[in-house]
């Protein structure tokens, strides 16, 4: 695990990965495994104000796909995965730079390009692990509550969420690479993520603003309704491309400037 920047980054993130995996699993179990009881107890039939639908997608809590889409994939799960990725991304470069460690690392025969790409790869793999854990937890819990959502559809939605996380994490990585400031990278990314979330959910409600939705990564993640329709290859491709572009931006950003101590 001490072989390269890539492995060392994952090694350093192991505890965070473990705790987030546990928290995510617990949350999924509570929300998903209980679905059958919630339906039977009538918890999900209360009148929902119309505007909530904008935030939670189609308010069809009774069906498994509708429930998963609204509670887990639009809200809870996506918030958890996005925050996880954002934290990793913000510290990937700016964190080490603020501590002074980047000065030491880049005084070794490791090019800045290579350094950024190894950090990006570690970020992608860590978010991938979180995504895999989430897929396993949701799949298991959905069988338990007898949901009729195919596991492959859960995989499709989780793959989208994982890529969304990687996009957000790469954005934080890129802002960190451009500025060297961790708090700024986290703040700017959180702001953009929130704006993107709102753009995806609110823009369609305003005439003439529908195109704004197309700018949001959330659209390419959930727009194809993966829980009902399965893999949306086009959406996943857009997210992958966005992550790669942001990684490229990070490479450019770190190469063009002074390293702070």
């Amino acid at each position: 695990m001490l072989r390269s920047v890539f492995t060392k980054t994952l090694y350093d993130a192991r505890k965070m990965l473990l705790w987030w995996s546990l928290a995510l699993t617990g949350t999924m179990l509570v929300y998903v495994a209980g679905h059958k009881q919630y339906v039977e107890a009538g918890f999900l039939e209360a009148e929902m104000p119309e505007f909530l639908g904008a935030f939670m997608g189609k308010l069809d809590f009774a069906s498994g796909a509708g429930y998963l889409n609204a509670t887990i994939y639009t809200l809870l799960g996506s918030v958890l995965v996005v925050i996880f990725a954002l934290m990793l991304g913000a510290r990937a470069i700016a964190g080490d730079e603020e501590s002074g460690m980047l000065d030491v690392l880049l005084a070794h025969p490791v090019s800045r390009t290579r350094f950024v790409l190894e950090r990006f790869a570690a970020l992608a793999l860590a978010v991938g692990v979180i995504g895999f854990v989430m897929w396993a937890a949701v799949s298991a819990a959905s069988r338990f509550s007898e949901m009729d959502v195919p596991i492959v559809n859960i995989a499709a939605a989780t793959a989208g969420l994982t890529l969304l996380g990687i996009v957000i994490g790469s954005l934080a990585l890129a802002v960190g690479a451009l500025t060297g400031r961790q708090a700024l990278a986290a703040g700017v990314t959180a702001f953009i993520a929130l704006a993107a979330f709102l753009a995806n959910n609110l823009a369609p409600m305003f005439e003439g603003l529908e195109f704004v939705q197309r700018l949001s990564p959330f659209y390419y993640y959930l727009g194809g309704d993966p829980l009902r329709e399965g893999f949306d290859v086009g959406g996943l491709a857009v997210l992958t491309a966005a992550a790669l572009v942001l990684a490229g931006l990070a490479v450019w950003g770190l190469n063009r400037r002074d390293i702070a101590v």
Partner: peptide
């Protein structure tokens, strides 16, 4: 940088790893 050894003016070294592990890692670079 391959052929130079550098000691920075201020040492960060705030990681959880042991000094030996850090040196192994830096050596691997």
């Amino acid at each position: 940088r391959r052929r130079v050894g550098y000691l920075p003016g201020e040492l960060p070294f705030g990681g959880r790893e042991s000094a030996g592990d850090l040196l192994t890692f830096l050596g691997n670079l």
